[in-house]
Amino acid sequence: MTPVALILWGIVTLMAAMVGARKGTAGLRGAGVFAWGQASSLAIRLPMALLAASFLTQILPTDMVADVLGPETGLWGIVLASVVGGLLPGGPMLSFPLALVIWQSGAGEAQTVALLAGWSVFAMHRMLAFEAPMMGWRFVALRLLSSCALPVLAGLLAASVLGLFEILFL
């Protein structure tokens, strides 16, 4: 177990005690049912997504990544990363392994921030499967217009925070 996992299980214990004190076993059972529902929907998808991401990693042209998304690519790398992030397919089980690979292949930290922000804001599958059917296309359009600059902004903010750290600690 990693330290992070230990901390998380500590939080689980603490929160379970709080829920148990406030709502008794019914509250705990409700929490368990919610968690189990999500877990069972992941049981097949997660291993398959990890397999797909790992296979793709083997064949992707990762030596290109440092050139187009490296720390020195600056604003254009951040813009490109935002767009690439918007094109990442599927839910977190697929995009986080891919983002990790892209980062490890030489993408800059700020560019990787923009990539994940782009995926969060634009996620195509979520828009088609949930947002448009429930909220309507006008809502989707308004949301996209309102948030299309955010991934680039996140990347730029990350770059300036990293730059500040370098000035302060080096």
Binding site: M1, T2, V4, A5, L8, W9, I11, V12, M15, A16, M18, V19, R22, K23, G27, G30, A31, G32, V33, F34, A35, Q38, A39, L42, L46, P47, L50, A53, S54, P97
Partner: peptide, 22 residues
């Protein structure tokens, strides 16, 4: 990857369920 994330994924799902109670 699966071995690395499973302990944290399990905890995260339970935290999600517990937060819903609040």
């Amino acid at each position: 990857l699966l071995l690395m994330i499973l302990p944290q994924l399990g905890a995260g799902l339970l935290i999600g369920g517990l937060v819903q109670q609040f």
